[in-house]
Design a protein around this nucleic acid. Structure first.
Length: 437
RNA sequence: GCGAGCGUAGCUCAGUGGUAGAGCAGCGGUUUGUGGUACCGCUGGCCGUGGGUUCGAUCCCCAUCGCUCGCCCCA
């Protein structure tokens, strides 16, 4: 036997059952983003590796072991995008969007790639959706992003199992002093830290030390200097304003000073919705005021959030949330005999254009074969046409559940099926989708 | 990057140091213009791959690849 091919390690086929959910999720996302003035954008699936190294930083776990990189036939270094923000910022700069009306509000639903060890929650190719607001740094934007995230989760039925946490990590200037204080504080206490944290300390990744990895570290973090003591007047005001806006529309949140991001580009606000009772992130975001300039563009602020579609769908399934199924077949048209087959196809097309989901006129034409197929397609009704029916211009309507059959005239088929299945919502068959005759 | 488990028929799995079994699926029949249920029959496997131990390995050992599940991480 020939070799069986498989989907590459860490990838999965997104089969029709997945798309039942995906279609619904996309519909919600599009609706909520459009409502808020966002427009959809797409960037290439891969960029020069340098683009990601610049944006994400060169010395962290993410760039060291999670980038899906390759050389092309001309020896250029490329990387499949691990997230979308970087590409959008590159695109913003390349197309000089700062000359357009600001803020630029963009959203996306795109596949991303990370070179991970695959498990039930992590794959190497996965879908992300998210939004970016570029060219404006008002705290109201941050609050609006959180509202949008919340609103989408609510539409998907997940708001009850997700909680919002927020924090501020200040400006780079604020952090400079804060980090010096942290360095002093941890000096001499290295042995209390886990080996991983000792490494973070050595690499001066002070922010990541704020997320404790052991009970000892938790105690240390509580005693350690707090970012709030080092915030400039502006940064403090900004964070206060964000909270005031959040309060103004009554969204629930808690402040969590251990909430940080491993990437260089965040400033001020960071937030995440995670599952209640564990740390599994569902939707994460924050402000990144230095990123556009760092990528070679104008000195403009930005904020955004992102969420994994696959994780959301699996949560919906766990929660027993069902989505509308619009692909169910309604009619199987069984033609028994070669003559009937020729006569049946126009009827099948007529049924479809009337709005029915119909299949048929397939395969061998024995009655048994036809009914077996109809049964496997799980249709409520089968229309049977043999040579006898062709001659009489009739067909048989068989109720697949009861087995009851009635003979009707072929030119009454639409009225008859409407009586059984209800009138169909259909496009006018004399026009195309754009309304042209 | 670390750890655990599993690779036997299309699928789900059992099994034994002496070259393999069940259920489901598939195909055919009981039923030549009528599906589902039932009964009968048939097809189907280099026991993941490579090496080692052994008279002999699907089984024991080593390696390798693949899958699954954790951990780290999760932009």
């Amino acid at each position: 036997m020939a070799k069986h091919f498989k989907a590459p390690t860490g990838t999965v086929d997104f089969l029709p059952d997945y798309h039942d959910y995906f279609t619904f999720v996309k519909k919600v996302i599009r609706h909520r983003f459009r409502q808020s003035g966002f427009r959809r954008t797409s960037t290439p699936m891969f960029e020069e590796t340098e683009v990601f190294l610049r944006a994400l930083g060169e010395t962290n776990d993410i760039t060291a072991r999670e980038l899906y990189s390759f050389k092309d036939r001309q020896d250029r270094e490329y990387t499949l995008r691990p997230e979308i923000t970087t590409g959008i910022v590159r695109s913003f700069i390349e197309h000089e969007m700062q000359l357009e009306a600001l803020p630029k509000e963009l959203y996306y639903i795109e596949p991303c790639f990370r070179f991970e060890r695959p498990n039930s929650r992590t794959k190497r190719q996965f879908w992300q959706f998210g939004a970016e607001v570029l060219g404006e740094s008002d705290p109201s934007i941050d609050a609006q992003m959180m509202y949008l995230g919340h609103r989408i989760l609510k539409d998907l039925g997940l708001d009850d199992i997700c909680e919002l946490k927020i924090n501020t990590i200040g400006s780079p200037a604020d952090r400079k002093e804060f980090f010096e204080a942290l360095a002093n504080f941890y000096s001499g206490k290295e042995r209390t830290l886990t080996p991983e944290s000792q490494e973070k300390l050595a690499q001066k990744k002070y922010l990541e030390l704020l997320d404790p990895k052991s009970e000892d570290e938790e105690i240390l973090v509580q005693m350690a200097p707090k970012i709030t003591d080092f915030l400039s007047k502006d940064s403090r005001q900004f964070f206060d304003d964000v909270q005031e806006y959040l309060n103004s529309f009554g969204i629930k949140y808690t402040i969590d000073y251990s909430l940080v991001r491993p990437l260089d580009y965040y400033t001020n606000t960071v937030f995440e919705f995670h599952e209640v009772g564990n740390k599994n992130k569902v939707l994460v975001g924050g402000r990144y005021n230095g990123l556009i300039e760092k990528m070679g563009g104008p000195n403009l602020g930005g904020a955004g959030f992102a969420a994994g579609v696959d994780r959301i769908i699996s949560l919906m399934k766990t929660e027993g949330i069902e989505v509308p199924q619009k692909d169910e077949l309604q009619i199987f048209l069984a033609a028994t005999g070669p003559v009937a087959k020729k006569h049946a196809l126009p009827i099948l097309i007529k049924l479809r254009e009337h709005g029915y989901h119909a299949v048929g006129v397939l395969g061998r034409t024995s009655m048994q074969e036809q009914l077996e197929r109809a049964q496997r397609f799980n249709v409520p009704y089968t229309l049977l046409m043999g040579d006898l029916e062709v001659k009489k211009k009739q067909l048989i309507v068989r109720d697949m559940e009861t087995g009851k059959q009635v003979w009707i005239d072929q030119d009454k088929v639409l009225e008859h099926m409407d009586g059984l299945l209800g009138a169909q919502v259909n496009l006018d068959t004399t026009t195309d989708f754009l309304g042209h005759n």
